[in-house]
Every structure is written in C-alpha cells, then in structure tokens.
Amino acid sequence: MNVFRLAGDMSHLLAIIILLLKIWKTRSCAGISGRSQLLFALTYTARYLDLVTNWVSLYNTVMKVFFIATSYATIYLMYLKFKATYDSNHDTFRVEFLLLPVTILALVLNHEFSFMEILWTFSIYLEAVAILPQLFMVSKTGEAESITSHYLFALGSYRLLYIFNWIWRYYTEEYYDLIAIIAGVVQTVLYCDFFYLYFTKVLKGKKLQLPA
C-alpha cells in the first residue's frame, strides 16, 4: 500500500458515494447510464469472487464487499426503486460490442488459463471500457449535471492514481502486472476528453455542455 494506491481507492469510494447520494437525495437517476452500472456490477462480481478463496487483508475484504454491495444497490435504485426517472431512451450503447471482445481477449490474453484467473482478467478488461455507455449517454444528450460530472471525475481519477501506484511499485518492489497496467491506461485515456471539459467548464461553475 502506498499513497497513490490509497488515494485511488478513496477516489473510487468517493465516486460511488457521490453517485448513490445523487440518486438518493434527488430521488432520480436521470443522466446515469444503467448499462454502465450493470457492467460495473459484472466487473466487481467477476473480480471479487476471490473473496472466498484468497485472503489479502481486512481492508481488502471490506472494500471488495463495499464495491459489490454498492454496485447492486445502484442497480436496485435505477431499475426498481427510481425506475420512472431512468433515462433509458438515451441509454442505448450496445454492450454486446464490449462484452464479446472483452470475453475473447480474456480467454486469449491472461496470466494463467484457469477459471478464477480468466474471470479476473475479464473483469480488468471490462472495467476499462465499462464507462463507455455513460460517456456515450453524455455525448448523446450533450450535457451532464454537475453532480454527475463530479462522479465521473472521481471515477476517472481512480485509475489514473493507480497508474502512479504501479509506477511506484515497479521502482520499489520490482512488481508489475502488464494486464492491469495496459487496461488501466486504456481506462484512463477514455476519460481524457471528459477531464478536459471538467477542468475547463465544470470547475468554472458552468454546466458540462458539449458544443452542438
């Protein structure tokens, strides 16, 4: 554990809390992609099955349980409790275009051809692209509420901070995991356009609005 890793985890935690609070306080999930949230739930389920086979630390276990539980709580709020507010006609990204290549890639490019390892690899690849339905939705509607922008910023920062953590670990522990690093870089790059808009618009008090 180093400061970048901890900051990354906290940023991830913050993103989820912002999202849940937004939905709960406004009683609405408008502007949020249910498809991205389903992909995140699938990501954490596939990755954290090792909760029952591999003990790392109390911190690790608590965080994993939190990520799995909140991902399903978000889905419950979006698809059941506040279903009427879900903007499904703007949430039209075809997730099979992500799931199919990610599944094939996980079967081909992995550290070990075993059930748990392929699930882990699948989750790493899937997480990298899981935000695309959400970014697609923002580009389709041409705008995002500020609170949604803060959520996306925290979520994007998390993998960027992990990249610093991997650089740190490479120099201090000679440890690196190419699959995680490459997927993490792809994940972060997908946010670049959004980061730019966040700094130039949202932080100056303007709404995130794409040029027509």
Binding site: R5, D50, N54, N60, K64, E117, D177, I179
Partner: peptide, 10 residues
C-alpha cells in the same frame, strides 16, 4: 518479487 497472480489490488 511478487507473483502477478496474487491480485492484492482492488
């Protein structure tokens, strides 16, 4: 050197 199969990260 740590094994990359350990997955100690989140």
């Amino acid at each position: 050197r740590q094994n990359e199969l350990d997955h100690d990260e989140l």
